[in-house]
């Protein structure tokens, strides 16, 4: 589904990603861990198509297509979703209207009809129940005055509504208390299927107790220095990141 080959990317002269190789197949959950500044969020943003970052070498393929020239909205239309670490506040636009717009723009781009209102309502009800979101919450302005936990839950609600093929969760666990974490993780797990994949980006192992990864990768200085099973996350929790400093994954 997603193939990243020898990806070098950065801002102007400053290279942040230093030759990333990663393959994600349908049905898999990958966790990407690493210390602050290792390039985790950059990797997520580059996959989602943030134009601030320039790819100097290597490429990203999604379902066999090179993503290089695809705008962020085109990637979204193909089924790539990124849950933001810092979701943006949009006063005057309700959560419901925002998600309606997002869904119908994607449908439009795929040459489909707009989703009928009753179907949309049903979907909103179903997904908001899954994430234990109050109806009143849905008529509030998007992210405006939301607590950290509400913002993250709202991100996963959007993900549930959009049903992406590939979901990238960028530090979704930061700012969540244990109850919110459980709800968010439950939401993500409910949406897992053999056809879609999830990349969980996190600093801590905690979220991985709830969203069990098939693979764990450690990112350091813009490179994946170690890959392993879910046990690697526990090891990292125990030992920290320093012991991996000199590791290099064989190409």
């Amino acid at each position: 589904m997603l193939k990243i080959k020898n990806l070098h990317a950065g801002v102007e002269e400053n290279e942040i990603l230093n030759g990333i190789n990663l393959e994600v197949n349908p049905g898999e959950v990958h966790a990407i861990m690493g210390p602050n500044g290792s390039g985790k969020s950059t990797l997520a943003a580059v996959i989602a198509g943030k134009e601030e970052f320039e790819i100097s070498e290597g490429h990203i393929e999604f379902e066999g297509e090179d993503l290089e020239d695809a705008a962020p909205e085109e990637r979204a239309h193909k089924g790539i979703f990124m849950s933001f670490q810092y979701p943006v506040e949009i006063p005057g636009v309700s959560v419901t209207n925002f998600i309606k717009t997002a869904i119908n723009e994607s449908r439009k781009a795929r040459g489909e009809e707009e989703m009928p209102a009753n179907k949309m309502l049903k979907l909103i009800r179903e997904k908001s129940e899954l994430l234990e979101i109050d109806r009143k919450f849905l008529s509030r302005s998007l992210n405006q005055g939301f607590s950290g936990g509400e913002k993250k839950r709202n991100e996963i609600f959007q993900m549930a509504m959009l049903e992406p093929k590939l979901a990238i969760l960028d530090e979704t666990d930061s700012g969540l208390d244990i109850d919110a974490l459980r709800i968010v993780a439950h939401g993500v797990n409910k949406l897992r299927s053999k056809d879609n994949a999830v990349i969980v980006i996190t600093h801590y192992q905690r979220l991985l107790d709830y969203i069990i990864p098939d693979f764990v990768h450690v990112l350091q200085e813009g490179k994946i220095v170690k890959s392993g099973s879910k046990d690697l996350a526990l090891e990292l929790e125990d030992k920290g990141y320093d012991w991996l400093k000199d590791e290099v994954v064989p190409q």
């Binding site: 989602a48 198509g49 943030k50 962020p72 909205e73 979204a76 943006v88 869904i103 723009e105 959007q158």
Partner: peptide, 11 residues
Amino acid sequence: ALFYLRARGIP
């Protein structure tokens, strides 16, 4: 903010 909206599929 623009990137956020575009990443949700809004042109």
